[in-house]
Simulated scan of single mutants.
Amino acid sequence: MTHFVLVAGARLGASAWDEVADGLRAAGHQPHPLTLSGLAEKRGVPVGRQTHVRDVVDEVERLDLREVVLVGHSYAGVPVGQAAERIGERLARVVFVDSSVPVDGESFLSGWPSDHVRKQIEENDGYWPPAGADHYADQGLTDEQIARIIQSSSPHPGATLTEPAVLTRPLGELPATYIKCLLDDEEPMPVVAELLKSEHWELVEMDTGHWPMFSQPVELARILAEVGAAS
């Protein structure tokens, strides 16, 4: 049995993993979906610098997890990647699900045109507001799945999107799997492509869009279970 800490991307909480968690349990593993501070049922919880990194580390330590697989989707790859190096020998593997990865001194919004996001945060009292249905088009999602994402979304604390990551060792030294969702973009972003040259990293592709926990939860659970079994 492998323990998985599952962290969804911006605006989403633990409920995004409901179907994936069911699949992991059916395969004999133990999932621990985690809602980050300030989101979903944790709205109103104060969020400062490195809060989301501490959320992940604290969950691993609170549950006293060993040989744990950390899973970060989209934005969550940034705090999960930082947490992975901080939990030390507790880590079995980190899985990045079509996600950004932390780069020391850079934020989630670094490296891509983000002026519109920064403006939205400024205009919405420091929060990135939930997206409309158009944002999820052409990503392999049904109308029902899109409605579920929108219903479960909440404003995202902007400070976590603009704070610089802090790494103490090269990310390529960590045992990692990167899951690339091909409808989002056929090629990994350059920083990920460079990391995939490491002998410690592997690439897995999914023929779906950026939210596979909604569009292909059974397949994502299968991939994660295989990662866990091999870790």
Rank of each mutant, 00 (worst) to 15 (best):
M1Y: 10
T2H: 01
H3N: 15
L6H: 07
L6P: 06
V7K: 00
A8Y: 02
G9F: 09
A10P: 11
R11I: 10
L12K: 00
G13Q: 07
A16I: 10
W17G: 02
E19S: 13
L24C: 14
R25K: 12
R25I: 14
G28F: 10
H29E: 11
Q30S: 11
Q30G: 01
P31V: 04
H32Y: 15
P33H: 02
T35I: 09
L36C: 09
L36N: 03
L39M: 12
A40L: 09
A40M: 07
A40N: 04
E41K: 03
K42H: 15
G48W: 14
Q50M: 14
T51M: 10
H52D: 13
V53G: 03
D55P: 14
V56Q: 08
V56P: 10
D58M: 08
E61K: 11
R62A: 15
L63N: 08
E67F: 04
E67L: 05
V71E: 09
H73Y: 09
H73A: 06
S74M: 07
Y75E: 11
Y75A: 09
A76R: 01
G77C: 13
G81H: 02
A83N: 09
A83R: 00
A83D: 09
A84N: 07
E85N: 04
R86D: 12
I87N: 08
G88F: 11
R90F: 13
L91T: 03
A92N: 01
A92Y: 02
R93G: 03
V95M: 12
V95G: 00
V95H: 02
D104N: 15
D104L: 07
G105Y: 08
E106I: 01
E106K: 12
S107Y: 07
L109K: 00
S110Q: 06
G111R: 00
W112H: 11
P113W: 08
S114Y: 03
H116D: 15
E123I: 06
E123M: 11
D125S: 14
Y127I: 01
Y127L: 12
W128H: 09
P129L: 03
P130K: 02
A131G: 03
A133G: 03
D134H: 09
A137I: 04
G140C: 08
Q145C: 12
R148F: 05
I149A: 09
I150M: 15
Q151F: 14
S152G: 12
S153F: 11
S154A: 13
S154C: 14
P155H: 02
P155K: 05
P157D: 13
P157C: 08
A159W: 07
P164T: 07
P164V: 06
P164H: 05
V166N: 02
V166Y: 07
L171F: 14
L171E: 08
G172H: 05
G172M: 10
G172F: 10
P175M: 07
P175K: 00
A176H: 01
I179Y: 01
L183V: 02
D184F: 10
E186T: 10
E187L: 12
P188I: 00
P190Q: 04
V192I: 15
A193E: 13
A193M: 06
K197L: 13
S198Y: 04
E199S: 15
W201H: 04
E202A: 11
L203F: 13
M206N: 07
M206D: 05
D207P: 01
H210K: 04
W211I: 00
M213P: 05
F214H: 06
P217N: 05
V218C: 03
E219F: 06
L220I: 09
L224P: 01
A225L: 10
A225R: 00
A225E: 11
S231G: 14
